[in-house]
Structure formats: C-alpha cells, structure tokens
C-alpha cells in the first residue's frame, strides 16, 4: 500500500478527483458547490507527493457520481485533474477534465467597472479563449482573466 492510500481509505462508491494542483482542493470543492453543510462524505488530501505534479491534492466524494459538466469547470484551476468514478471499489470510468467554451456563474469579472459586477439581473459569463494556459474573457466588458482565477470564484 502506498502512503497516499494509507492517508485516505478507498471509497466504495462515488467520485475521486485526482491530480489536483497542490493547494487547490478547497477551491475544487467550492467550484463543485460542496460546502460544510452538504450531506456528502468528503475526504480531502492536500500536498501529497505526486510523480506527475511533484505535489498534488486529492478529493473523494462518496456516494455521488459527479456529472461531466460539473467536473469540467475544475479545469479552471486544476487542468491536470483526473476524474475517477468508483462503483463497488472499482474504477468504472476515468477521464480528464475538459474546460467548456463558456463558463457561467463560476467566476466573476475582475473589472470593478464591469456591468456584471452590479446588481443587474445577469449572471457572470466568461468565454474560454484558450484552455492551456486558461484565458477567460468576460462576455460583457471583454476584460481578460488569466492569473489568480481562484481569487475570482463566485
């Protein structure tokens, strides 16, 4: 058994998000809408050694199979993340995250003068210009967002 597996036991059913950039696990939960008040059993492992990334975070959500569109938004902050769907201790599906072409209600525009940062009845909308590195453009004011995206998560 490797050290990682010792830290968090395997789950029977649910979703394991692996290869999250170190330090981003809590932001991943935020993007997934998983807060302390959620019922789900959630394990978070941060800063474990990884062959691929040096260090990585892992999130395990029990008894819930996350949908593709839910997890794809994770690519905003953890483009190397892999999603494993677990049934009866077996990985039945494994896939990478792929950012959609438009992100709605996930990231707010960093431009304080943007109309999307007012009380108008609209949702923040970002067009994904490039996926690696992630480059977003606000649909309203066209301001680009590429660094510190996690700071602007809604």
């Amino acid at each position: 058994m490797t050290e990682v597996e010792l830290k968090v036991r395997p789950i029977k059913n649910g979703t394991v998000i692996d290869h999250i950039a170190a330090g981003q696990a809590l932001n991943v939960l935020k993007i997934l809408g998983i807060f302390g008040t959620s019922d789900a059993t959630v394990s978070v492992v941060m800063n474990v050694a990884s062959g691929k990334l040096g260090k990585k975070d892992i999130v395990k959500v029990e008894d819930r199979e996350l949908k593709e569109e839910e997890v794809n938004r994770i690519a905003l902050i953890a483009p190397a993340a892999t999603i494993n769907i677990i049934r009866n201790f077996n990985v039945v599906e494994k896939r990478n995250v792929d950012l959609p072409n438009e992100i709605v209600k996930v990231v707010r525009c960093q431009n304080p003068s943007c109309i999307s940062n007012t009380s108008e009845p609209i949702s923040s909308r970002m067009t994904v210009k490039t996926k690696n590195p992630v480059l977003l453009r606000c649909v309203y004011c066209e301001q680009l967002l590429t660094e510190r995206i996690a700071d602007y998560l809604i």
Binding site: N111, S113, I115, S116, I122, V139, Y140, E142, Q143
Partner: peptide
C-alpha cells in the same frame, strides 16, 4: 451611453 463597461451588451440581451 453608460459608465459601466459591458452595459450595451447587457442592454442588447
């Protein structure tokens, strides 16, 4: 004409 950027786009919606 509006002081906020993106206001015309909002108006068009």
């Amino acid at each position: 004409r509006h002081p906020k950027e993106g206001s015309a786009r909002l108006a068009s919606e």
